[in-house]
Design a protein around this nucleic acid. Sequence first.
DNA 1: CTCCAATCTTGTCGCTGTAAAGATTGCTCC
DNA 2: GGAGCAATCTTTACAGCGACAAGATTGGAG
Lengths: 221, 221
Amino acid sequence: MAYHHGDLRRVLLEATAEAIEENGVAALSMRDLARRAGVSHAAPTHHFGDKAGLLTAFAAEGYEQLAQELAGGSFLEMGVAYVRFALTRRAQFEVMYRPDLYHADDPALVAARAKSAEALYDRAEHGNQKSAGDGIQSDARNGNQKDARITGQAGWSIAHGFATLWLSGAFPDRDQDPIALARALFQELNRAPEDLNRTPEDVDRGPEEPDPDELDRDPEA
Amino acid sequence: MAYHHGDLRRVLLEATAEAIEENGVAALSMRDLARRAGVSHAAPTHHFGDKAGLLTAFAAEGYEQLAQELAGGSFLEMGVAYVRFALTRRAQFEVMYRPDLYHADDPALVAARAKSAEALYDRAEHGNQKSAGDGIQSDARNGNQKDARITGQAGWSIAHGFATLWLSGAFPDRDQDPIALARALFQELNRAPEDLNRTPEDVDRGPEEPDPDELDRDPEA
DNA sequence: CTCCAATCTTGTCGCTGTAAAGATTGCTCC
DNA sequence: GGAGCAATCTTTACAGCGACAAGATTGGAG
């Protein structure tokens, strides 16, 4: 174990995920990470400045990974991918949404976070290419960007809420497949939003001409 | 500041909320609470055993309060009440859903948590008395308890997800009224679930006779 | 009035994060 | 190839933390 470890930074980030998954983020300790990496207790500080710095890098990496896994697929599949990410990369997920743990204004982190948020809203806005009947659909048909954001935030909320509730053990069906349950919950999202009486501010937002690439409205039911 | 403080336990619980709202739960310190209460550093331990014990009592109190604020009102209003609770009693809310911070098997806490969960599911099951057209409705019309649980979990998820995302600053519209935004998101929940093709296991769950107290199905759209 | 149990204090221990200063190494430039 | 330099890691030190043990103080029951 020489002075130059090779890629201590990377090793520490992986040890972070490991440690959090084992003992929770509250019990995370820099010195424990150093021990796991076989390095002196002050070595981690050199790479990340302080504990918040470590978690900043950890969260930023998480946002990058999330943005990547969110790319492609329908709106519904994006929700599924969101939940899958939360359950698979549990440690990253838990840190990402606890901004009191890291430097929330770090440029790299802000950029990564914006990237994944963009994926979320983009899908809500540009609609759902291939899953007519999936349960989650976009509001792009009326070209209303505000509705798209509402749709995106609703989908984000239900996916995020399910993931956190599941992870915290709040749901009773612990033996069930969480992904299947998540799909069932997504079905509860609006499928026929044309009966939503929109508020006046929504309407004057733009002309209501139907979208040319409207292809996800199926006449069933 | 005599030996018998009066109601140190209560004072400490209130100081806990204060400290968490100021510096986040990660920075919470028993010794700081003692300082706030004007008491020696070991006094809190006597009342709660350890830090996890303090947070156990704190979370249990939170679940009690939540159950209380969830009582009464429509299914939609319950969602609103949930969000309002999360934003108002932020410290309690943050601790409640971090079971790694407290003794999750504590009897008092388990009871309190069950009480609020019961309120959630009950409303989903027994339906929505007064808000036909509110956007969230129960599935009780087909007497299917599984659907009711799905409905309840979907509502819980979207409310919980919105609350946590809002609190973590994930949404861009920080200036907007969060309660109004929450209402808008709840509108995205299913209003016409009769077009949901239910799976076979759902169907054989019981006879499909319509509920006698069916009163929230409006024929619009 | 006495005694006891509840309450709070004091002192101590090992652990933590952070900072400062020193040791070792690899790389660059001459 | 050798000097110097910057990056990397170690060592040492310190204050704050949670937890424990032992002692001081108090209110109330008998």
